[in-house]
Design a protein around this nucleic acid. Structure first.
Length: 123
DNA sequence: CCTATGACTGGTC
DNA sequence: TGACCAGCCATAG
């Protein structure tokens, strides 16, 4: 896992990115889930953070889906197909409606150790 | 410095 | 099933 560091003093977007980095290949997280773990004020903050990521970022943004298990539509376009391709390459299957079975691919959450070291475990 | 602008979710009607 | 609404932070121009 990557360096947790002290995420408590980091900006909201930094915490969100750090959490997304913890999502392993082949699993997917929802904006709401990431938001709760990163202590974002609202799930939407996660979307905002993803939208500002640089093109060549190392953050696995494609593993973040909305609460319905679908790829969220974005302004620019294009990125949606890429997101699904990346997930498919990791073995994530989409059903006929274009949805992922969250009950099967949902991420369990970050490791306890990471959570503690990052400072996000504290309430 | 101020405004517009985004990858969302849960509750209510 | 929809449709509508509040809540929210960083960045660009």
């Amino acid at each position: 896992m990557d360096k947790p560091g002290n995420l408590v003093d980091a900006s909201v977007y930094e915490r969100i990115e750090a959490v997304v980095r913890q999502v392993p290949a082949g699993r997917v997280a929802t904006y709401g889930q990431v938001g709760r773990i990163a202590r974002a004020a609202s799930p939407r903050q996660v979307g905002y953070a993803m939208a500002t990521l640089a093109p060549g970022t190392t953050v696995p943004w494609h593993r973040v889906l909305n609460s319905r298990g679908m790829v969220s539509a974005r302004g620019g376009g294009g990125g949606e197909a890429r997101q699904r391709a990346l997930l498919a390459a990791e073995g994530v299957v989409f059903d006929a409606r274009g949805r992922v079975d969250l009950g099967r691919y949902a991420w369990d959450g970050p490791d306890w150790a990471w959570l503690w070291e990052s400072g996000l475990a504290r309430s």
